[in-house]
Simulated scan of single mutants.
Amino acid sequence: MSAHQHTGHDHGQGHGEGHDHGHGHQDKGHGHHDHTHLDWAEMAPLLTAQAETQSPMYAAAADWLASLAPATGAVRRVLDVGSGPGVVTALLAEAFPEAEVVAVDGSPELLALARERADARGLGDRVATLRAELPGDFDRLGTADLVFASNSLHHIGDQGAAVKAFAGLLNPGGVIALAEGGLPTRHLPWNQGIGRPGFEARVDAEHAHWFGEMRAALPDAKDEIDDWAALLTGAGLTPSGTRSFLSDVPAPVPDAVRAQIVAHYTRLREGWAERLDGDDRTTMERLLDPAEPLSLHRRPDLFLLTARTVHTGRKV
Rank of each mutant, 00 (worst) to 15 (best):
G86P: 05
A112F: 04
N171A: 15
R196I: 02
S150L: 00
D223L: 13
D10K: 02
E274I: 07
E133R: 14
G86M: 04
L296P: 06
Q54S: 14
F148K: 00
V262K: 07
Q5T: 11
H21S: 08
A132S: 09
A256Y: 03
G182I: 01
T283Y: 09
W40R: 06
L183F: 12
G106C: 03
S2N: 14
L92G: 01
Q192G: 15
G24Q: 05
H15C: 09
D139C: 02
H25I: 01
D139I: 03
G313M: 06
A205N: 10
D63N: 07
T48R: 10
F138N: 01
A208F: 07
D139Q: 05
L38R: 11
L188D: 05
A221C: 09
S67K: 13
L304M: 13
E100D: 13
D145T: 04
V81Y: 00
R298F: 10
H9K: 10
R281Q: 15
A259R: 15
H6I: 09
G193T: 12
R299C: 05
L246V: 15
T53F: 09
K28V: 14
H311R: 09
L38W: 00
L170Y: 09
Y58S: 08
L188I: 13
L47N: 03
A49F: 04
G8H: 07
R117D: 03
G122Q: 07
L304I: 00
H32L: 11
H15K: 12
D137T: 00
R299S: 05
A41T: 14
A208C: 07
L134I: 02
A208V: 07
P189V: 12
T238I: 05
G271R: 15
A95V: 06
D227M: 03
V127D: 00
L302I: 12
A149V: 14
F138T: 00
L276Y: 08
E116P: 02
A61N: 01
A74G: 11
L169S: 06
G174T: 12
S244I: 03
